[in-house]
């Protein structure tokens, strides 16, 4: 069942983004920014946590989940360290993803060369 809900919820987030790309003038970059900030907002008001509990990776894998990690990280850090946590918590919560992107990205860049796409 977890797989099915992850599929449906995750797929639905992607489908909404696709509709926005195709029917509005919003560029992909703007939609990604929108999704991340929306993820932070929905987590802040307490809506997103239940979705994560329900859909698992269907909610954490899309960029909304990136916003969720940022907001969760900030909340944990503020609880622990006070106001300074507002600065440290976001990147702590997302450090695995960003760190992996930089390290793997760099290594891949050293090995491969781009080629003309169709």
């Amino acid at each position: 069942m977890e797989f099915l809900w992850a599929f449906i919820i995750g797929g639905a987030f992607c489908a909404v983004a696709q509709i926005l790309i195709d029917t509005t003038g919003l560029t992909p970059a703007r939609i990604l920014v929108l999704y991340v900030t929306l993820g932070v907002f929905l987590t802040a008001v307490g809506i997103y946590k239940p979705i994560v509990d329900f859909a698992g990776c269907g909610a954490t894998t899309p960029l909304l989940g990136f916003g969720y990690s940022l907001a969760e990280g900030v909340r944990t850090a503020v609880d622990k360290n006070g106001l300074i946590g507002a600065l440290t918590g976001g990147l702590t919560g997302t450090s695995a993803g960003i760190g992996a992107a930089i390290v793997f990205g760099y290594l891949i860049t050293l090995i491969f060369k781009g080629k003309p796409r169709d």
Partner: peptide, 27 residues
């Protein structure tokens, strides 16, 4: 115009598959 229905369907299936794959990794 972009083929909205086809694009959206593809996005749903592929996005859903990636999320389900992630769920599989978690398991």
């Amino acid at each position: 115009k972009s083929p909205v229905f086809k694009d959206t369907f593809a996005a749903f299936i592929c996005g859903g598959a990636i999320c389900a794959f992630a769920e599989g990794l978690k398991a």
